[in-house]
Design a protein around this nucleic acid. Structure first.
Lengths: 166, 166
DNA sequence: CCTTGCCTTAAAGTCGACTTTAAGTTGTAG
DNA sequence: CTACAACTTAAAGTCGACTTTAAGGCAAGG
């Protein structure tokens, strides 16, 4: 049965930014930030103030979840806008997830290597002084490190806290 | 047999900063930075320019190695200055390493959790649209997330590249 | 009318570990 | 003398993801 104009069940923007922030567990400033960088569409204003509907909550939920999974805002932007419109959400996730899994595997390998060296250091180091220690390190790293031209110091990587229950 | 004053086999500062940088695989600016923040002692100057002896190389070797193991400059400062003078190098390393190992274990747990969720996401998500997806996420996170007061977004953690051979 | 509380904006600050820049100095070679 | 390379300094810039600050707007309540 048809209903005349109006009420097409379109969500009405009625939430304030702090209400949204509370519901998704973000600070209002973060939401404004996401809007600024184009991750969220410009929210309509009521006498200057942003109003949100439930779809904004869903968008933010995705951003939140993606952040928990270690995606950068750039990657999340890709999730939203980096595919042809017809590409299904599940496929978008699959593409991004595959990349991220590979990254995580690399990261784990790195961590395992570090763990190994730390354990060896703990059990095997008998140095009295750091100078002694440093001399040993210097001479051994000379073998494989000094040869390389300019290693270009490793930059920022991801962070993975325990915000996700195992 | 005693030798008169001089030549007590004390290392003579003769290396320029760029020579040191080359030998330890750092940029000169990084070495200046370490001096500025007090991680390295102020190098003696010859007509205004820094000169280094081999002990500087050892210090830098330690810094380099510690950085590769994921220690922050603050932690390295602790390694150098955070113990009573008599504390042996090996014990200093053990103390720091233990802390770092615990940190790494936490980090690994976090990563494993994320990996699990990513894999589930890849195989289980059937969403056509991101809105659909977001709605699901929003409703499920509402159960365990919205309840918490203010999660205080997780900040910067470490980075672990593959600069260490496994 | 005034206060209160929530909102707005642009701009600057934060964190860590450096790098880059601008302006100047020193020693050496031609 | 000039050029050049290599050094010096303090200050500012970089990256990412925000937060904080300063200054102001707008509606409701007393």
């Amino acid at each position: 049965m048809l209903i005349g104009r109006g009420d097409l069940n379109v969500p009405v923007p009625e939430l304030t930014i702090s209400e949204v922030a509370r519901q998704v567990g973000l600070q209002a400033s973060a939401i404004r930030y996401y809007e600024r960088i184009g991750l969220l569409p410009r929210a309509p204003r009521m006498s200057g103030q942003r109003r949100y509907d439930t779809t904004a909550l869903y968008r933010l939920a995705i951003i939140q979840r993606a952040r928990q999974l270690g995606f950068t805002l750039t990657e999340i932007r890709h999730l939203f806008f980096g595919f042809r419109d017809i590409t299904r959400a599940s496929e978008r996730w699959r593409t991004l997830s595959q990349r991220k899994l590979a990254e995580l595997d690399d990261l784990m390998d790195g961590i395992k290597a570090v763990r190994g060296v730390l354990k060896k250091l703990m059990t095997k180091c008998r140095c009295d002084t750091l100078d002694q220690c440093g001399k040993g390190i210097f001479q051994s790293t000379n073998r494989d490190v000094v040869a390389r031209p300019l290693p270009a110091s490793p930059r920022h990587r991801e962070k993975y806290a325990k915000n996700l229950r195992a």
